[in-house]
Nucleic acid binder design. Structure first.
Length: 473
RNA sequence: GGUCCCUUCGUCUAUCGGUUAGGACACUAGAUUUUCAUUCUAGGAAGAGCGGUUCGACUCCGCUAGGGACUGCCA
């Protein structure tokens, strides 16, 4: 149902964030959908930085966007376009509109506009300037803005790819400002000119721009240009249904990264928010690209569900390369001020594959591996100290000797050895397992005993047991 | 206030006029067990409300209610 004029061109999509702070997760999802659609159709995915508001745009925010996209693995196919740099072109088009009568100079003061706004609101109509049908004042250097001369009647229909046909009465649409009194172009004008010049065929963006689609359609028409196809994505809300904000835990891409979510997990989870392919929940980028279609994008807003995100992330952590995880987790440990020695590094490498199935985030993985990084002799927690009575100490002593006989220090045979030992002692593992756990981990979270032993290595394991025994005696 | 959008289990969703309304996460119970977790098994859980259209409606239409967006010389 796309605009016929754009149907035959190769697809060009774009993400057009304004660099005014953090990169919202909704922007990330819009980027993902644009990226998926471009990849699916063999088209192009572009980035445009909407920095026409010089007051609010910052260099740092631009970098945040670039970093965010890069982290997500959604690199644009060309250098970013900076909207601000195109101001001359925008002004040219306003000139053209002025010549063709599609726009007019409005000399209303801000106060007068405020009054008109109030009147218009009270009367339930759109804002109209008195200068719409009036000659310019005689005093030539009076400040003015350029407004769009919108049609007074008829309707504008946006055939939205997600929402279906959306009808706006032209009478309800304001004569919006195209050029500010300082001569700088505004958003709605710049978007239209840039989308046209960049050859954008599909505009997939947040729901909050739906009403802008009506306004922008009018400008496209006034300029005599073909419109792109529009698709307005529903917003992402917090778990309570309100617009996603800081108090929901996170809203910026960078925050998700810091919380230990993997970019591929974010892509999978975000894709599933508002888009679906039957019952498929976990899928690769290749599959998502093959399956993605705008017609399968839902129209209702979705809530962020941390539990499910955690589940998806866990799935990708399980499948992730261990060396990559080790590097990522090492950074987290380092960030927490932990020094990682050579031996610790090796122990981490051994520990990660043994514990990662229990990690929902990289932060979890850090918690699950911290026990191998402890330095001997470990400080024993009270719970463990209480478990270390004479009988248990005797057992652990014998266990140490028994384990040292193991030819191979890997989990499966170690597990067998533990079972055999328990049997030879005539007790269940429960009789000394918890004590051994405490001795090996110093109270930190640790995996099952055999895995913990393997991760620590022979020397370290036996050393920790010996340390504990001499400490208690 | 006005314009526009949205509404299936707690959450994300499948369904595209005829189904015991399916799946995933979460939850509950049981099994496993050296903590937590993992794993396995079982289970509860939904069409906002009211009217139409139709032989038949979750699906189409209208109204109501509830959410949301926009209503800037912000984007």
């Amino acid at each position: 149902m796309s605009d016929p004029s754009s149907a035959d061109r190769p697809v060009v999509t774009r993400i057009a964030p304004s660099p005014t702070g953090q990169m919202h997760i909704g922007t990330a999802r819009a980027a993902l959908f644009n990226w998926l659609y471009a990849r699916h159709t063999g088209g192009t995915f572009l980035l445009r930085i909407e920095d026409t508001d010089r007051e609010r745009s910052t260099e740092g925010a631009v970098q945040t966007i670039l970093d965010g996209l890069s982290w997500l693995g959604l690199e644009p196919d060309a250098e970013p376009v900076y909207q601000h740099a195109r101001a001359e072109r925008h002004r040219e088009m306003v000139e053209k509109l002025l010549e063709t009568g599609g726009a007019y100079r409005c000399y209303m003061t801000v106060e007068e506009v405020a009054e008109e706004r109030e009147r218009a609101r009270a009367q339930g109509r759109a804002i109209r300037s008195i200068w719409r049908d009036r000659e310019a004042p005689s005093r030539t250097n009076a400040p003015f803005v350029v407004r769009f001369r919108g049609p007074l009647e008829g309707e504008t229909i946006v055939n939205d790819l997600v929402k279906g046909p959306v009808t706006f009465a032209n009478a309800n649409m304001d004569d919006l400002v195209l050029l500010r009194s300082d001569g700088s172009p505004t958003y709605n004008l710049a978007v239209v000119v840039d989308d046209h010049d960049m050859g954008i065929t599909h505009v997939l963006r947040g729901d909050d721009h739906l009403s802008n689609a009506g306004r922008q359609s009018l400008i496209f028409e006034a300029l005599g240009w073909a419109k792109p196809a529009f698709g307005h994505l529903p917003m992402i809300h917090g778990p309570d249904g309100a617009k996603l904000s800081k108090r929901h835990g996170a809203q910026a891409v960078g925050e998700f990264a810091e919380m230990g979510y993997l970019p591929e997990a974010m892509r999978n989870y975000l894709a599933r928010l508002g888009w679906g392919h039957g019952d498929d929940e976990l899928f690769s980028d290749v599959q998502a690209i093959a399956w993605f279609d705008i017609k399968d994008v839902g129209s209702a807003p979705a809530r962020l569900d941390w539990a499910k995100l955690g589940h998806v992330n866990n799935h990708y952590i399980r499948g992730a390369d261990d060396a990559r995880l080790a590097a990522l987790v090492g950074d987290i440990h380092a960030g927490r001020g932990l020094v990682i020695h050579e031996a610790g590094r090796a122990a981490m490498d051994r520990a990660i594959p043994l514990v990662k199935e229990g990690a929902k985030t990289l932060l979890d993985l850090a918690d699950l591996t911290v026990f191998v990084l402890k330095i001997r002799p470990l400080a024993l927690d009270e719970k463990t100290l209480k478990l270390l009575d004479e009988t248990t100490c005797g057992r652990l002593g014998r266990l140490g000797v028994r384990l040292d006989d193991e030819p191979e220090w890997i989990a499966a045979p170690l597990s067998k050895a533990l079972q055999d030992f328990a049997e030879s002692e005539g007790v269940g593992l429960g009789k000394f397992g918890p004590a051994l756990r405490g001795v090996l981990s110093g109270g930190a979270t640790a995996p099952d005993l055999a895995s913990a032993l393997e991760a620590l290595g022979r020397e370290e394991s036996l050393g920790r047991i010996a340390d504990a025994l001499s400490q208690v005696q």
